[in-house]
Design a protein around this nucleic acid. Structure first.
Length: 654
RNA sequence: GCCACAGUAGCUCAGGGGUAGAGCACUCGAUUCGUAAUCGAGCGGUCGUGGGUUCAAUUCCCACCUGUGGCUCCA
């Protein structure tokens, strides 16, 4: 007999093989009605699955967060049930629950259109109404092969079970049977609130060499309000989308003439410069800014290892002389735009003798990089071919690693704080594609890990996710719509010093090998600005806002005063614009709000006579404050200098 | 790169085998206004590009370009 312990300490003794449902029934009939699944010894299983071991026994109801994944997984089966009814020839792939909902992959002759999705959703509602129980069956390999004789993808999946003692199970809801581990909700009627979202291609088993399947994405919730909230949130996310706001706020543009490379408008350039100026200011004491060329001969990339490991992503430049002298196409491509800054920084470091007293020596740059991303990967500002990093290469002694990693971590986390962003740390170790000996990797990983642990901050381990030249600490930042972005990075590199023969002179007057640390904070400015646009919904704090104050004379009588106020603000370094258009005040205020200008200074006769401004704060409506011009100016100068997060960022609705 | 979808005025979008339409923006005129759209007039597009079918293509077909959602990749 197996012993199950309920949360209240009570126990149940059951024979192995008893369905979980029977155990729940002994606790209470109402609980049985509410039950979605159970957890046995920490593992979620459904009510129909036999209990095979004892331990802690919990009934999972709607309230349990684990229930949602069960519901969504069942949703995937219901989706497949509906697709099979409408397209009996569809071969079925996988259909898991994912963070936001679920999907199912199908191999179909004709891809799904938006109209197909509507029809499939309609069919799913019928399957739900028909209330088929999810019936579990445990089968042998041979039986499974019979059941899925017409499903090539499932047969391939079954091969994975060869020689394993894992139980093969199938689930049947009405007309549809799937190879599936479970667990599932008791019957199809549980899926009440769902929505099909999109169709997209997806490689079978994620392998680009395999055939492309058609994936349907959907989401589902227990409560209608939750589904509505999610759909609303998706709508909000769409409004915050940096591509939409970038157009509305006139920040940047793309042209087919330069795919993957942004054009920055005057407003966008103000934003960029404000950000870059901030980084420059933070780096002025402990870093050395440099500029290096964009175009290099391949000898540099051969030395750095990029030619072997990174060539696919590099823009190669054709050499006219070589091509005309009869060289092969391969040989004519003898130059490249830089995809990374490191090799050029190493050249500069190498060009001079360095004392141990200079270390750590930190080169920083804002140079432009080019990476030839495949066309399908491009997306707004977040995935581009030309971008600038706030890049830094630190040359240091091995005994300085711990202190330097802490210094850089504080620098990076302090930067995110300025924007109200929080980061999570990840530690990534050696990848399969790499340069350098295992001994060097052992040393690098050991040193970086020790430095990370000495800070006492929690981190997640990502095995095999390191750069090809060294292990790294990555900083993941969450944006306002819950997406995690990898921004900053600290990468330890023992390889580059070898390849570039980097040296410093030690206290002992002998040559020593320094260690290199690669550091980026924003990731790329392009992508970081995209994240800021979405994070602030375009309502930037005043220090970042392209236009910081809009001065609005109420009538032409006060235009002289308005111009004087504007000039005063500009003299104080504030980006102020005077809006003297003959449109009504209401119209101009509305325009200022739509452009998310942080402050509007409304000026009428009263203000002109008293030397004051009436401040309208973005998003605050009519609540206004009337203060002397000098006070307003001083206040703004302080907010800008301290990079205050004011005025508060209104939501996307504003 | 692969699969699907999309591309009509500066923007958002409607339309559809017989050489195109709205709102906003823009220009001009009137209006000078106290906190989210004043009124009127006007300008503006060979309907992404190149082929094909057709008496006729922006509309149908093909290819390409760019974008979007994914797959893959990644800052």
């Amino acid at each position: 007999m197996l012993v199950l312990t309920l949360p209240d300490g009570a126990t149940r003794e059951v024979a192995p093989g008893t369905p979980a449902r029977d155990v729940v029934a002994t606790i209470g009939p109402r609980l049985l009605l509410a039950a979605i699944a159970v957890s046995v010894d920490g593992e979620v299983q459904d009510l129909g699955t036999p209990i095979r071991r004892g331990g802690a026994f919990q009934v999972i109801t709607e309230k349990d967060p684990r229930a949602l994944a069960v519901l969504r997984h069942s949703g995937a089966h219901i989706l497949a049930t509906a697709v099979r009814r409408l397209r009996p020839e569809a071969a079925i792939g996988f259909g898991p629950a994912i963070d936001d909902g679920f999907y199912y992959d199908f191999d179909v002759a004709k891809p799904f259109t938006p109209e197909d999705l509507e029809a499939i959703e309609e069919e799913m509602r019928k399957v739900v109404a028909e209330r088929y129980p999810f019936v579990r069956a445990e089968v042998t390999q041979a039986e499974a092969r019979r059941v899925f004789a017409d499903d090539p993808l499932k047969l391939e999946r079954l091969e994975d079970f060869e020689g394993s003692d894992e139980i093969i199970s199938t689930y049947t809801d009405g007309p549809f049977t799937d190879l599936c581990r479970g667990p599932h909700v008791p019957d199809t009627s549980y899926l009440k609130n769902f929505k099909l979202l999109s169709a997209a291609g997806a490689y079978w088993r994620g392998d680009e060499r395999r055939q492309m399947l058609q994936r349907i994405y959907a989401t589902a919730f227990f409560k209608k309000e939750e589904l509505d909230a999610r759909l609303h949130q998706m709508e909000e996310a769409r409004k915050r989308d940096h591509r939409v706001l970038g157009k509305q706020l006139d920040l940047f543009q793309f042209f087919p003439h330069a795919p993957g490379a942004a054009f920055w408008t005057p407003r966008g350039t103000h934003l960029w410069n404000a950000l870059e100026g901030f980084v420059r200011e933070r780096q002025q004491d402990d870093f050395l800014e440099i500029k290096t060329p964009l175009l290099y001969t391949k000898t540099l990339w051969e030395q750095s290892g990029h030619w072997g490991k990174y060539k696919e992503n590099m823009f190669l430049v054709w050499d006219k002389e070589e091509a005309e002298s009869g060289g092969s196409a391969e040989e004519a491509l003898r130059m490249s735009l830089k995809p990374m800054n490191c090799p050029s920084h190493h050249l500069l470091f190498h060009s001079d003798k360095h004392s141990y007293r200079e270390l750590p020596l930190r080169y920083v740059t804002f140079d432009v990089l080019h990476r030839n991303e495949i066309s399908g990967a491009l997306s707004g500002l977040t995935r581009v071919r030309q971008f600038s990093q706030d890049d830094c290469h630190v040359y240091l002694r091995e005994d300085q690693i711990a202190a330097e990693v802490k210094f850089l971590m504080d620098f990076i986390l302090g930067y995110y704080d300025t924007f109200g962003l929080t980061a999570r740390l990840k530690f990534a170790t050696r990848p399969e594609q790499r340069i350098g000996s295992d001994a060097l990797w052992d040393r690098a990983e050991g040193a970086l890990r020790a430095a990370l642990e000495s800070t006492g901050r929690p981190y997640e381990l990502k095995e095999g996710d390191g750069a090809f030249y060294g292990p790294k600490i990555d900083f993941d930042v969450m944006d306002s719509i819950g997406r995690a972005w990898q921004l900053g990075t600290i990468q330890l590199d023992y390889n580059a010093p070898e390849r570039f023969d980097l040296e410093y002179t030690g206290e002992d007057n002998a040559a020593h090998r320094p260690v290199v640390i690669h550091r980026a904070v924003s990731g790329s400015f392009e992508r970081f600005i995209a994240i800021l646009i979405e994070h602030f919904a375009g309502a930037f704090p005043v220090w970042l806002a392209p236009e910081q104050v809009r001065v609005l004379p109420i009538s032409d009588d006060v235009s002289g005063y308005a111009r004087a106020v504007t000039a005063k603000l500009r003299a104080a370094g504030i980006r102020a614009v005077c809006d003297e258009r003959s449109d009504t005040l209401n119209y101009r205020i509305r325009d200022g709000e739509i452009m998310k200008v942080p402050y509007m200074a409304v000026l009428g006769k009263r203000e002109a006579e008293a030397g004051q401004v009436a401040i309208r704060v973005r998003g605050a409506g009519k609540k206004q404050e009337v203060v002397p011009v000098d006070e307003f100016t001083a206040r703004l100068v302080k907010e800008i200098r301290t990079r205050a997060l004011t005025p508060a960022s209104a939501g996307a609705d504003a």
